[in-house]
């Protein structure tokens, strides 16, 4: 199978990546090359095989329900591009 330009544009939008029509063309070529490589795995019969999400099995370890003192806000927010009154500022959120 191979992707179309509209696939590329849809994915780019989902991923919030701006692409010019020229980028889209180039990316379409690259992605189809890469998916050509990826398609090779379809040759392997995997009927009845349990998908493996983690390299080592086992169960999730849980944390005791205790809150801790946090790194101060001034330190955790110091890299913010825009902040005021302890808030991160973003272009208006419309709901």
């Amino acid at each position: 199978m191979s992707l179309t330009l509209s696939d590329v544009e849809r994915i780019a939008h989902l991923a919030r990546i701006q692409i010019t029509p020229a980028d889209a063309e180039r990316m379409l070529g690259e992605l189809n090359g890469i998916f050509g490589l990826i398609e090779q795995m379809q040759a392997i019969d995997t009927t009845g095989i349990e998908p493996m999400a983690h390299p080592l099995g086992g169960a999730q370890r849980l944390r005791a329900d205790e809150h801790q003192t946090l790194i101060p806000r001034d330190d955790t927010m110091k890299n913010a591009p825009a902040r005021q009154d302890g808030l991160f500022l973003v272009p208006k959120v419309i709901e």
Binding site: Q84, L89, K92
Partner: peptide
């Protein structure tokens, strides 16, 4: 998201 006006932006 706080919608009071912060320099025309929203606060998070």
């Amino acid at each position: 998201s706080l919608h009071e006006d912060y320099q025309g932006m929203s606060g998070i």
